[in-house]
Design a protein around this nucleic acid. Structure first.
Lengths: 254, 254
DNA sequence: TCTCTCAATCTACACCGTAGAGTCTACGGT
DNA sequence: ACCGTAGACTCTACGGTGTAGATTGAGAGA
């Protein structure tokens, strides 16, 4: 076994913030974990070392607990992953969903929400696969509430925009589908070795046979000065324009 | 409850005869594997039992070989997964990319390609996570050629449509982003237990607190008669219309 | 016959998720 | 002061995983 790693002594002594049992915790016994703490540690582990590094044993080590201690806070590893996606989705702010700010144009709300989502995912790129993968194994209604809140709020925005129930659902799908597709695209084009000189080399495009990939090879420079924010903004403009035209068309949103 | 999946102590002795090599040396020595055979078997395994079931040992068992024999055809498990995504992407037919059928409108080509992609993924839903996840860890130029061919062909279509290099790239991103987003959406809404009676029950929507999720709960029936093909078609219409307007605008495709 | 090469196998190691049982501590009741 | 209890945690063990390294065995060519 490796030497004990104690560089990360867990923000204890903060008993007030979570629904912890009545432990005062100033004795020799460490204050108990909470699922909040566990999930936060898991997120840090994933952010720093990637998804593969998130094992119960490694997480237990990071928290200075036996791996089995984690099973009090997550039924199993899958539940831990689900918790991570919820932790992230719950941070997605969709303003304009409440009754307060109804006067703000819905297009602007959706545009801002899209940029917020993009930034959120870019801050935790390794979690992205979870956002795609985890919901696949859970029926919609059984997902954690925190993961459904964005859906509900988006439906509210579309409803206030004038869409009927069915129209709001269609609009949501077009919107969220494009959004998640864009983020995947952006992450996939992320360059791994930004300290390379030649643009072709940096992307490895030199390897491609010129005969079979003429267009791709010509794009080296354009691929490098990729502006994800502008790209998203243009795309969202297209989608919103399309949705608006649906709203105005006679065969409208019902 | 959370019992593990341990009901098959000894799987069948049948060495997955699908895709057996044609040349069967009647002698004691079996004809050697090929990476084609290995990948095909891996795909079948994933299709039938899901991604988790694809382990070197299980695949070796299916092929009636020692697990280590596979390492001659795939450097490691990750390479196997990459091979799977290539195997799938390589089946994506994008007609109109060759010089022959240039007269066919590019919008129709892209629409058909989109539907083809959707059908392809629906036939292998468990592979979808790979399509999203795998390219994240490989710089664009270093991906297998089979995985880059669709990109190149789409660029060709956009170029012939009148986009300049940079415009074609933007168009590709909007198109493919929406496409992959849609498929993710569709797979996520797939209902797991279609033998349930009540629509609310089937989706688990009854669990949601009515106060916090009014819109979502109202959508039970609409969620159930989801027509992915029509949905994709509408979305692709929106995207194509947006792209075309970019083509015609003066600040156009450059 | 002897050797070379390829395909496949055998053995072993470190790691993984997690079931089941045991341990330690603080607290409430008496 | 004592005990019982319940909660938080730890120990041990089992079967699974990817894969490095050494080994086998069967043609092909000399």
């Amino acid at each position: 076994m490796v030497s004990m790693n104690r560089r990360d002594p867990v923000p204890q002594d903060v008993p007030g913030d979570a629904a912890t049992p009545g432990t005062d915790g100033r004795g020799k016994r460490r204050s108990p974990l909470t699922s909040q703490i566990v999930l936060q540690a898991a997120l840090e582990l994933v952010d720093v070392e990637g998804l593969e590094a998130l094992s119960m044993r490694r997480l237990g080590h990071k928290l200075d607990r036996d791996p089995m201690a984690l099973y009090r806070y997550a039924a199993n590893r899958d539940a831990l992953l689900d918790g991570l996606t919820e932790l992230l989705l719950d941070q997605w702010v969709i303003s304009g969903a409440g009754p307060g700010d109804a006067d703000w144009p819905w297009q602007d709300q959706l545009r801002q929400a899209a940029h917020g989502f993009r930034l959120l995912v870019l801050q935790h790129p390794h979690v992205m696969p979870l956002l795609v993968t985890r919901p696949l194994s859970t029926p919609l209604g059984l997902r954690p509430l925190g993961a459904l809140r964005p859906l509900e709020q988006l439906l509210a925005v579309f409803t206030r925009a004038g869409f009927g129930p069915s129209g709001a659902l269609h609009a949501y799908r077009a919107y969220y589908g494009f959004l998640i597709g864009h983020v995947i695209n952006e992450l996939e084009e992320f360059v791994v070795n930004p300290d390379e000189d030649d643009t072709g080399l940096r992307l490895g495009l030199h390897r491609l046979p010129a005969k079979d990939f003429p267009h791709l090879r010509r794009l080296a420079s354009q691929l490098l000065d990729y502006d994800g924010q502008a790209e998203l903004d243009q795309g969202i403009t297209i989608v919103l324009r399309g949705l608006q035209s649906q709203l105005e068309s006679p065969a409208g949103p019902q």
